[in-house]
Simulated assay, not measured.
Amino acid sequence: MLNIGAHLTISKGYEKAAKEAISIGANTFQFFTRNPRGARAKTLDLEDIQKLDKISKDHGFASLLAHAPYTYNLASGEEDTWSLGKKLLRDDLDRLQHMESCNYIVFHPGSHVKRGIIFGIDRIAQGLNDILTGEENTMLLLEGMAGKGTEIGSRFEELRLIIDQVNQRDLVGVCLDTCHLYSAGYDIVNLLDDVLEEFDKKIGLNKLKAIHLNDSMMPFASHKDRHAKIGEGTIGLKAITTLIKHPAIKSLPFFLETPNEVEGYRDEIKLLRSELNKESLEE
């Protein structure tokens, strides 16, 4: 079964977001934990969360995916920025403790801002060691990046180095993004098996917990992060459906982050399910 969702807003509550997910043919969804460009979070509504959990259970949702704000930068050498990231992440983890339907929170590892990759990796790991207690019921997912500027996490080796330094490494996994992978120089169009084998060798497929599903506006190995609608970019519909049905990852939840409104997500989910059904009949 295809576990697929989209990035939905929770401005009107978690229950409404869950119902919206069902209305577009999704069986999971992703949401920002707080203002993506700031620090403000909604007041915690436990009744709303309980309604979300019931809908998720009743409809057999795959785990939801919380997305951290872009204001996190655990790779920063600036104490104020680093401390803010740690404070927000700790608060997000505390809030997610109340949500049974969400097992993961994904965040961008951060940017070393000309301090060097090793400095940034050490800084991220130190920050996670300061935050994690081992009592969390939510797993942190490092997002694989496109490699623009001084951001960390575009290479599998970098993600591995972070995980290896975290004391509570059982609570740290990975979320891959198809646009980011392709832009970072991993050829998921022509060499998908090789890419997944390399990930397994360097990190371990057991650490891969979710996938952001996007086409790309930019050419292969561009190191630019520009998402495109499914089938309208340089990755293409065929490569994306091939990835979705790959035996090593087909059971994972996939989350659309394409440049769409809700109706556009509905069309993409319908398209992907149709393509997978068509290929299944042809086989």
Rank of each mutant, 00 (worst) to 15 (best):
G13P: 04
L52Q: 10
K229A: 03
D177E: 13
Q165I: 07
E279L: 11
R40S: 06
I10H: 12
L8Y: 13
I117D: 13
L141F: 07
F220L: 09
Q168R: 13
R123M: 13
L2W: 02
C102R: 10
R226F: 01
E198N: 07
C175Q: 03
D267R: 14
G85P: 10
I230L: 05
L272D: 00
T9E: 09
L161W: 08
L141D: 08
M217S: 00
K209H: 11
L132C: 09
I249F: 07
K42A: 08
T9A: 15
S280D: 15
Y186C: 01
D48C: 01
M217A: 06
N103C: 13
L272R: 00
H98M: 03
D215G: 02
N167D: 07
L132S: 11
L52V: 11
P36H: 14
H112W: 03
V106I: 10
G38W: 12
M139P: 00
I124S: 15
A146W: 13
I49A: 04
G60H: 04
E263T: 05
Q50T: 02
K54A: 02
E136G: 12
L96A: 12
L74D: 06
I162N: 14
A66F: 13
L88T: 08
E15D: 11
H59R: 14
G38I: 12
N277V: 15
I105M: 08
L88H: 12
I230H: 03
K19S: 06
K250W: 02
E282I: 15
G38S: 14
I188C: 05
A21M: 06
D122C: 09
A146T: 10
D193M: 08
A39V: 14
V166W: 04
L191Q: 15
M145P: 07
E197H: 12
G5Q: 09
L208E: 11
D193E: 13
H67A: 01
V195G: 04
K224F: 11
D45A: 06
L272I: 03
M139D: 00
K250Y: 03
G147C: 00
S83G: 10
L140I: 15
G60N: 11
D91N: 10
E275R: 06
Y182F: 05
S56A: 15
G149N: 06
H67E: 00
H227C: 04
F107E: 03
S76D: 06
A41E: 10
E283L: 14
N260L: 02
A184L: 07
L44P: 00
C102T: 15
I131H: 03
L243H: 07
T138F: 03
N190H: 12
L208T: 05
R266A: 10
L181F: 07
E198P: 00
D94R: 09
S222K: 11
T242V: 04
D187Y: 04
S251I: 02
E78I: 15
Y14E: 10
D130Y: 07
E257V: 12
G110K: 07
K250R: 13
I24P: 02
